[in-house]
Nucleic acid binder design. Structure first.
Lengths: 233, 233, 233, 233
DNA sequence: AATGAATGAGTTTTCATTCAT
DNA sequence: CATGAATGAAAACTCATTCAT
């Protein structure tokens, strides 16, 4: 299995790299093949069509995120929230993080036109908002957060952080007062939205130093059944 | 010139329609030609390359927005801000508004890979944030807004509204508690961010009923220089 | 029109040549493009798919035959029948004739698998048998043929001549007693089937010397509407 | 050997089935592999190339026919001739019979382009015509047939029956007066060609009820030498 | 200004074949 | 014997762009 999984993983890594180098619109099977040092034919051996491959990649991307989010579930709510915000904009391994968002942004532009991709984007939205909502609920139970409408707040936070991230990526290096777009917006949303929500005496850990979710390079094994379906019996 | 302008306008309208029907990645010159009932050759007569055409279209899109924003500059700040928010998510002519955002979203995915497009996206960001910042300054001067960091607040509002809009478009009909994503987020941002910013006794006009920017169909003439110059630096 | 028709004609001639050089199974669009000194793209400009092109070609082939058959309709029945038989196996321009049959044979192998091709083959069968049946009826009316079952006889003659022709083509130069397969069979079918059908004193003209249908190279104009449907308006 | 033969037989059966389902032009090794529930690799283990496999299949097809024909050699000539005709068009197990002819028809279209296939088609022609010729000679010796040119008559009969069969297969369900093409033509050829050839008082057994050649399912062992030798001269 | 015809470079996909196991 | 993984070569088809008119 380790060998099989490795091929699938190499392909996923290839999509990842190719996607951020070329963008969705200019992404060719050849680009992906080059990015993982395999042949185009092999990609088609594992995934019937380009779309199948990209859909599998989206699934992979989201599943990876889910596992990372789940991995921090035992920490206090304030730390988890700080980690979530940090993941959007303060990761020291900026490059790696940015690539995740670029990949998602690129595929996102296909949402309005491709049902299969849209259904994955919807899943990713449920995962994002669900994660934040769960953190908020935990905080309210713990007494560290004032009671607020959890769904609305989650929607606001995700929209804001995602919007900031998207703008930063697409505009590249557009700074506000010498800081990145995402950092500026994240700080402001903490000041204006999150701090007022915290119970008296509670403080959000510094998003600059909080440990971001999972260690970055934990291998996420790809279940062959999920996305490998060569044509032969 | 009226005739020239009309052809250019028809082409721009064609790009607009083709872009939301096919998306950037699958947009062909033929799609655009079909959408404006012209021949591919004619598009190439006016714009040397497909990229030239799309860049001209982005310029057109942003200029149109600028004029609309400028047109409301004589209204009070609270009304202007309500109108800006409404433009993102409460326009009764939902379809038309959505198309603007789809068009922008599609081209945005090219930002990281295309300098010419990115420079236009940067301009559009300056226009968006600049408009909000100017409204905030006006409100502070008028005394209807408490003094806040104008740049930060503008960045936050634009990121939030844009993020919500983007998610709504790409996810299509993902609702939060029976409302659209954008509406939910807009209401929440008003509650948590804008209302606390208003001076005592001041109220934001209802975003559901405020008049949204400019009349939608004012013709925006397209300067020939913008579209004929072939490659730019 | 002459110019348009010329392009369509050149393409048809290219299919004709490519088909006999490569056979249906190994026929590529490139083969056809080479055979008419055009680009593959041009073929796709005029015909959306390879299948469309081949279907158009079959239509062209059958229509051409129909016109040739119709052209001899004023001759006496015995002469027409002799000409029909000669067309199958005694044409002095053997090469040209053989190509028609090779083309038909190749496409025929697709009959059981392709509805559109099969419907054309059915049309060609109606034309072949109809032509013979009409000749027989004319002969019976003229009194040169004994009354026979016209449909059955036409079916027999077409099956026999076609079967002989097919075998000759696929076996290549399989001779019976130093004559070609088709010649042998044609002579035998004249002796055993046709001669007994002739009225007393009537003789079938010599199939070796009778004039075969139409002059071979009359241009058959191809109605653009029938088979040209580029995508542009 | 029984096990070896069984694998080879399964493969031959696979070619048979795949050929009639997909046709020669669209026949892939994968189709054949699927049709015999084996892997592509196994096919290549037994036959170096696709062409080798198809040539072996043709050999198999013809050998099978030969054995069937030989098996009836002790019956009277009229019965053998009726059985031969019946085999073309009156077999109660119509489906099975039709598949033989489809398979042959499909490979036949390659005759003009492939020497190895053509040589097998020539062999099949010799077998067919030889069988009929031998029957005719036997009949003449027995005194049931009038003396006729045996070669010519055999050529005529084979061409006619084959031509009818081919048309029926490629046109599918083209009937003449409510009967199948082959039946109509077979009846007519009996009336016009065979009956006049019979000695006075002799009658051809009813082709509808005569026993057709061999029992259909006798296993035909495949000589290993035939299929293992790779390319032949 | 406008178009239809034409093309070259490239795209996804297919497929016979090979190879390691 | 038998298979799954892998690949190179080629297939149909696409598309931005050019050109003659």
């Amino acid at each position: 299995m380790s060998d099989d999984a490795s091929t699938a993983e190499e392909i996923m890594a290839g999509v990842y790299r190719a996607l951020r180098e070329h963008g969705y619109a200019d992404l060719t099977m050849q680009d992906i093949a080059d990015a993982c040092s395999k042949s185009k034919s092999l990609l088609h051996y594992h995934y019937d069509t380009k779309e199948d491959l990209l859909v599998a990649f989206l699934d992979h991307l989201i599943t990876t995120f889910e596992r990372r989010a789940a991995a921090g579930a035992d920490r206090p709510a304030t730390e988890r929230l700080a980690a979530f915000i940090a993941w959007f904009g303060f990761d020291p391994d900026e490059t790696d993080r940015e690539h995740f968002h670029i990949a998602l942004l690129e595929l996102r532009s296909q949402g309005p036109f491709n049902d299969r991709i849209r259904s994955r984007l919807q899943r990713s939205d449920r995962v994002f908002r669900g994660t934040v909502a769960e953190i908020l609920e935990q905080g309210i139970e713990e007494g560290t957060f004032e009671p607020v409408d959890v769904q609305e707040t989650a929607a606001l936070l995700v929209a804001t952080l995602d919007g900031a991230r998207t703008r930063q990526i697409t505009l590249d290096e557009m700074d506000v007062d010498g800081d990145t777009y995402t950092r500026t917006v994240a700080r402001t949303v903490i000041d204006r939205v999150i701090d007022p929500m915290l119970a008296a005496g509670v403080e959000l850990p510094d998003v600059e130093t909080v440990e971001v979710l999972l260690p970055r390079d934990e291998p996420v094994s790809i279940a062959p059944a999920d996305r490998m379906d060569g044509r032969e019996a």
